[in-house]
Deep mutational scan, measured.
Amino acid sequence: KLLSSIEQACDICRLKKLKCSKEKPKCAKCLKNNWECRYSPKTKRSPLTRAHLTEVESRLERLE
C-alpha cells in the first residue's frame, strides 16, 4: 500500500492505542462500548529543516 492511502484509526482508538477496525460511521470498538466515534483530519507533519537536523546532530555528539 502507498503511504498516502493508509487509513487512520478513529480518535479514541488512537488515543487509547487500540486496534481500530476503521469502519465508518462507527468502528467496532466504539460501537461495542457506545463511545462517540470521530475521525479527525490527518495532520500534516512539517518537513525537517536543516537547522533542526544540525541541532539534533550536535546534541547527539555531546551525549556520545
Rank of each mutant, 00 (worst) to 15 (best):
E7P: 15
C13L: 06
T43F: 10
T43M: 14
R45D: 05
E7R: 15
A9M: 12
A51P: 05
K32W: 02
E64P: 04
S46P: 09
S5A: 15
L53A: 01
K1R: 13
R45M: 02
E7T: 15
T49R: 07
P25H: 11
Q8E: 05
S21G: 03
E36A: 09
I12V: 13
A9L: 10
A51W: 12
I12Q: 13
H52M: 10
V56Y: 11
S58V: 10
K19M: 04
D11F: 06
S5W: 01
C37A: 03
R62P: 07
K1A: 08
Q8M: 14
E7W: 13
K17T: 03
C30H: 07
K19V: 07
K1F: 05
S58C: 10
L31V: 12
T54D: 09
A51D: 07
P41S: 07
K44V: 08
R62C: 10
E23F: 03
C37S: 09
S21R: 05
E36F: 02
A28E: 14
P47E: 09
E61Y: 13
I12L: 15
K16A: 12
K32N: 12
Y39K: 09
S21H: 09
K1Y: 07
Q8R: 15
L63P: 10
V56R: 07
R50A: 02
R59N: 05
A28G: 15
L3P: 15
R14G: 00
V56F: 09
C20R: 02
K44M: 10
T43W: 09
P47I: 02
P41N: 10
K16V: 04
D11E: 09
R59T: 08
C27A: 11
Y39W: 02
E57W: 08
K16L: 13
K16C: 01
C37E: 08
L18H: 00
C37F: 08
K22C: 01
E7N: 15
C30V: 04
K42H: 07
K44I: 11
S4G: 15
L3A: 13
Q8T: 14
P47T: 01
K32M: 03
E7Q: 14
R62H: 07
E64L: 07
S4I: 12
R45Q: 06
T49K: 05
L15D: 12
R62G: 08
K42A: 07
E61S: 13
L18C: 15
L53H: 08
C37M: 03
I12T: 15
E61C: 11
K19I: 05
R14A: 00
Q8I: 15
S58H: 12
A9S: 14
C20W: 08
K42E: 03
P41Q: 06
N33W: 14
L53I: 00
K44Q: 06
W35G: 11
E7C: 13
C10G: 08
Y39S: 06
R45H: 01
I12K: 14
K26I: 03
L2N: 13
K29N: 09
Y39C: 06
K22G: 00
Q8V: 15
L3K: 15
E36W: 05
I6S: 13
R59M: 07
S4L: 10
E57H: 03
S46V: 08
W35E: 09
H52W: 08
C13G: 15
L63Y: 15
L31A: 11
E61V: 08
V56L: 10
K17P: 01
L63M: 10
L31G: 08
S4E: 11
R14C: 08
K1S: 05
P47L: 06
N34D: 08
P41W: 06
L2F: 15
R14Q: 04
W35N: 08
E36G: 10
K44N: 01
L31R: 08
R14S: 01
E55R: 11
E61K: 14
L48F: 03
L60K: 05
R59S: 08
K29F: 03
L53D: 00
K22T: 03
T43S: 11
K17R: 08
R14E: 06
R59Y: 07
K17Y: 09
L15Y: 06
S5R: 15
L60H: 05
L3S: 15
S58D: 14
N33S: 10
E23Y: 01
C20M: 01
R50Q: 12
C30K: 04
K17I: 01
R14N: 11
S4W: 12
I12P: 11
Y39R: 09
R50D: 02
E36D: 13
E64N: 14
R62K: 15
R62W: 00
H52N: 07
C10K: 00
E61P: 02
K22W: 00
I6T: 14
C20F: 03
A9R: 09
K19Q: 01
K19E: 06
C30Q: 07
E7D: 11
C27R: 10
C20E: 00
S21Q: 03
K44W: 00
A28N: 03
C27I: 08
P25R: 10
P47F: 09
K24A: 13
R59G: 06
E64T: 10
W35H: 12
A9K: 00
C20I: 08
E55I: 13
E55W: 09
Y39H: 02
T54C: 11
A28V: 11
H52Y: 07
T54A: 07
K17M: 03
L60V: 07
E64A: 07
T54I: 07
R59E: 05
V56C: 04
R50K: 07
A51I: 03
E36I: 12
N33M: 14
C13A: 07
K44R: 11
R45Y: 05
L3D: 08
L3F: 12
N34Y: 03
K19A: 06
K32P: 05
A28K: 13
P25S: 10
E36L: 09
L31D: 09
L15W: 01
L3M: 14
C37K: 01
C10Y: 05
R38M: 08
R45C: 11
R59K: 14
R62Q: 05
L63W: 12
K16W: 07
L60M: 09
E55C: 05
A9P: 04
K24I: 12
K1G: 04
D11G: 07
S5H: 14
K19D: 05
S5E: 12
K26F: 05
K16D: 08
N33I: 06
A28S: 15
L53M: 12
P25D: 12
C27G: 10
P41Y: 02
L63N: 11
K16T: 08
L60W: 00
K26S: 13
K26N: 03
L31C: 13
C37P: 13
S40M: 09
K22Y: 06
L53S: 02
S58N: 15
E61G: 08
L2R: 13
W35P: 10
T54W: 07
E23C: 08
R50S: 08
N33L: 04
S21P: 04
S5L: 12
P25M: 00
C13Y: 05
